[in-house]
Nucleic acid binder design. Sequence first.
DNA 1: CTAATTTACGACCAACGTAATCATT
DNA 2: AATGATTACGTTGGTCGTAAATTAG
Lengths: 293, 293
Amino acid sequence: MDPHLLRTYVTVARLASFSEAARDLGYTQSAVSQHIAALETDLGMPLLTRRPVAPTPAGERLLEHAGALLLRLDAARADLDRFAAAPRATLDVAASPLALTPRTLAALPATGVTLRGLSRERVPVAVATGEADAGLVDGIAAPSDPLRLTDIAPLAATGVAEEPLAVVLPAHHPLAGRPGVRLDDLVDARWLDAPDAGIPLDRLRAVHGGPAGRGFRDALRYEGTDTRTLAALAAAGHGLALLPLPAAAGVPGAAAVPLVAPRLVHRVELLLPAGTGREPTGPVAGFARRLKG
Amino acid sequence: MDPHLLRTYVTVARLASFSEAARDLGYTQSAVSQHIAALETDLGMPLLTRRPVAPTPAGERLLEHAGALLLRLDAARADLDRFAAAPRATLDVAASPLALTPRTLAALPATGVTLRGLSRERVPVAVATGEADAGLVDGIAAPSDPLRLTDIAPLAATGVAEEPLAVVLPAHHPLAGRPGVRLDDLVDARWLDAPDAGIPLDRLRAVHGGPAGRGFRDALRYEGTDTRTLAALAAAGHGLALLPLPAAAGVPGAAAVPLVAPRLVHRVELLLPAGTGREPTGPVAGFARRLKG
DNA sequence: CTAATTTACGACCAACGTAATCATT
DNA sequence: AATGATTACGTTGGTCGTAAATTAG
């Protein structure tokens, strides 16, 4: 269970080839073979089938563990490096698309900022591994409830914004004129599945019916990150979309109907590296202060 | 950042001595010294002060990471071992004290059960590291909200019981006759701090006022795990206690007043190792089925 | 037959122990 | 002075690369 062996293993599994992995890692193919053999001996079970190279069921299981493990390892090193490093003059912010509201954008310093748009899952990773100094993630939750983030490393999360949710539907939709809509009424509707631009459908199913929750069939899947495109798709009748009310309002040809039940909000949280140490300094501190204050 | 070095490091930090750590780990003191030196060189900063041996600020930070890392490592190995192991004939259940309700106890098989009482934090660890086949944890949460557990490894959590909460107070207390009580009314009261037997005070502060929440001063700290003792302390006027209503009722000399605001419940969850693999078999499966069904 | 993994073997490096040295109380 | 951490150094075991053997498509 040496991290080196694990890193080799995940690379082999990802590339589905010993030789490719060797090239990728700067090893010889023989070394890779020995790594895998060592792991399989250590754990007492085969992890990969050869020709074609694919993880066995046990190997699949190991992949989950190994990924998280290596991530934590990188996060730990990054955190310690950051601990000793000189205070930074610039600010790298990782943000999921819907986390960029007028309010969060206004809090960014005027100069020296790099803004990196990432998917929701990758924002905490970027902060933990030191690729970003701060993160902004969005998600849906009950009012004043924290977001459920996968905790890679100890990160401090602070809520910085909560806004109502709205369903975007074509202007001619029967529910378009209503002052509010219940999620129950839309279980059987066709939805747009846009995990990066909007709210992922499985989150909807989760907050609604639990894991066994059927419903919320997807009509069309949009893999981009542009909210306007998503709203346009909804306006064109390709399916319903769930967006924060401010983002949903003012789309031509579409109506934004606030979601009134269940009581959910769109929430944005600020992610900063860990906690027990001293307070952040420099641009990060200013950014955090403007967001919280 | 070799796990061996990390394990040595946490041991040295825990025992505050190179020689003691060496004895504990079966190394010579020289080897321990070299391990620490290697770590400090690798990370480029001192981690421990010598004479007395104590972690530096950076070392403190590393301790957090290292603990989680080593735990995950153990969990991964245990999970893989379990994957290959023959189906077990006995059942080891780890449970926090208040998770043992009549309902959960009734679901235990008649024979071949070992029940291990642990603190709330240690139950997930026991399941993840394979010390237990299943876990029962309790905590407070909003109705039908999952508990917030530290995720050591991928564990499947299922809610198995939710019951109202009640404040235990002396029979002569002014609020004793009331049909219900609000937490707001009790912020300034003296509370019993019994993290293992009852609800920890910081959880109360967290659900109430957030991290800065003052109030809920502790009058007496009880470190045992016996709920009857806790109730007796409350009856004797040593402070208030928060318990699940069934556990709080029927205590001589004490009144149990249901908590009506905020809307919180005492929740018990069943913890099973990971998910993506096949379904559990043997006694674990029966236990889980009886609890869920 | 060809492409790719495994095995054999030798060189090198890293890890540990013994023992001497150094530092702190 | 005594306790305890560090440094020096020799031995051992493990890791990697080269190259030959083997296997599967």
